[in-house]
Design a protein around this nucleic acid. Structure first.
Length: 375
RNA sequence: GGACGGGUGGGUGAGCGGUUAAUACCAGCAGACUGUAAAUCUGCCGCCCCUUGCGGGCUACGGAGGUUCGAAUCCUCCCCCGUCCA
């Protein structure tokens, strides 16, 4: 029984890229798609109207660990689920908390049963298991649930990566079995791990495919490994995943890398870079990155990106945005985030368009020779 | 006129005989950020020199003298500022 149906409409004749539609209970999502990260039921700095109506976002991320701790999944369930709680009309994918195994490594302990977290909010202990994280995500009413996994750091030994990967597979089986036993209308994606070892990646993918899930994720990327390795790990995993299911590369990437992932068969990506970097003064443009706090923009009347059609670029100058940033004004975060998310979504639109025209390799060539930084 | 308190690097403000070119915060200038413990974090921040290293030189804690091997730190005088009493 397939709850999330994936329809492939175009395939690149040269690369492994494809264009399709992810049919979710909360509407269709054109792929390849970039999913903005809304960890705490909000993409920091933007309203749901900004995201859905203005930017055209159709799928967002939420986070199980954070929303379980606050406000609590039962609270969200009582308020009608995450969609109703945050008034989001589009689809929602929730991460399982597996990334917090990595990012909050000082505050957790891994056992065969699951992960015991010490809350970063108040120190309370909370046990996360493959089954409980499915339950929590079902309470949210997520369209796509992620299986609990262990995201190991980099570097890690082959032995550790191997043991960790097998545990992640066992957890995925438990999560899948638990999910199938419930009257869910949503889909559970397991996550391919294996650190930077191609043999483990392949092994992991092959084991997870036996679960016949609606989609598969490739995790454990961008945890400090050299950039090329991230792409190599996708190359090692993707051929072993079913061609007719969506593939989700978790936590990537820089603007110039998006097409690289798509070329390797990736349909879904998410990353905090556009939102976090926006707040920290790093803006992405068609001419490369622009650090808005640089003194050279103090009296620059131009928009962030002359070619960008976003609200921020149509209405405000670099000088004004720099002023807002320097002054610590809250409007800055909103305007900057709106621009960066728009930039990512525009790149994805360009990618889809290029694939539809079967001109994707040429598009990649242009992206590879694009400037890294605004001059 | 008198009595106290105080004048420190762009600002606020520590230090009160050597380890002080001088704590901290702010401002300023850069760097980082990849399934968000992040509107965060890191570095630089008197001038000059050597591409260099915990490198060298110069100038600096209101001003001028003095005590001392050594002073932002102690003494004398002067100039400012604040509070209080006339």
């Amino acid at each position: 029984m397939r709850h999330i149906h994936f329809e492939i409409t175009h395939q690149c004749s040269t690369t492994r890229a494809r264009v399709g539609v992810l049919h979710t209970p909360h509407g269709p999502v054109p792929t390849p798609v970039f999913m903005p990260v809304g960890t705490q039921a909000t993409v920091k700095g933007l309203s749901q109207r900004d995201l859905f109506d203005d930017l055209g976002v159709r799928i967002l991320l939420g986070n199980t660990y954070h929303l379980y701790l606050r406000p609590g999944h039962e609270t969200i369930r009582k308020l009608g689920g995450l969609h109703q709680f945050m008034n989001w009309p589009g689809a929602i994918l929730t991460d399982s908390g597996g990334f917090q195994v990595f990012s909050l490594s000082e505050l957790r302990k891994i056992t065969e049963d699951g992960v015991r977290f010490q809350s970063h909010l108040n120190g309370d202990a909370h046990q996360f298991t493959p089954e409980s994280t499915v339950d929590v995500q079902l309470a949210f009413g997520s369209d796509i649930l992620m299986a609990l996994d262990e995201c190991p750091p980099y570097p890690v030994s082959h032995q550790y990566a191997h043991d960790s990967m097998l545990r992640t597979v066992r957890w995925a089986r438990r999560a899948d079995a638990h999910h199938r036993a419930l009257p869910a209308q949503h889909s559970l994606f397991p996550i391919v791990q294996g650190s930077v070892f191609p043999d483990l990646r392949r092994d992991c993918a092959e084991r997870l495919v036996e679960l016949d899930c609606d989609g598969y994720a490739i995790g454990g990327l961008s945890v400090g490994e050299p950039r090329p390795l991230s792409l190599e790990m996708v190359e090692a995993s993707e051929p072993h995943l079913p061609r007719d299911r969506p593939r989700y590369a978790m936590g990537v990437g820089m603007p110039a890398e998006l097409a690289e992932y798509v070329a390797r068969g990736i349909d879904m990506m998410d990353c905090v870079l556009p939102s976090r970097n926006a707040r920290n003064g790093c803006l992405f443009t068609s001419q490369g990155k622009l650090i808005i706090k640089h003194a050279r923009f103090k009296e620059d009347p131009r928009p962030i990106d002359e070619k960008c059609p976003c609200y921020t670029c149509r209405n405000h100058s670099r000088a004004y945005l720099r002023h807002l940033f320097q002054a610590g004004e809250i409007l800055y975060a909103s305007l900057a985030t709106r621009h960066n998310i728009r930039r990512y979504l525009d790149i994805m639109r360009e990618i889809r368009h290029a694939i539809q025209l079967d001109a994707f390799p040429e598009y990649m060539q242009r992206m590879r020779s694009a400037p890294a930084e605004v001059d």
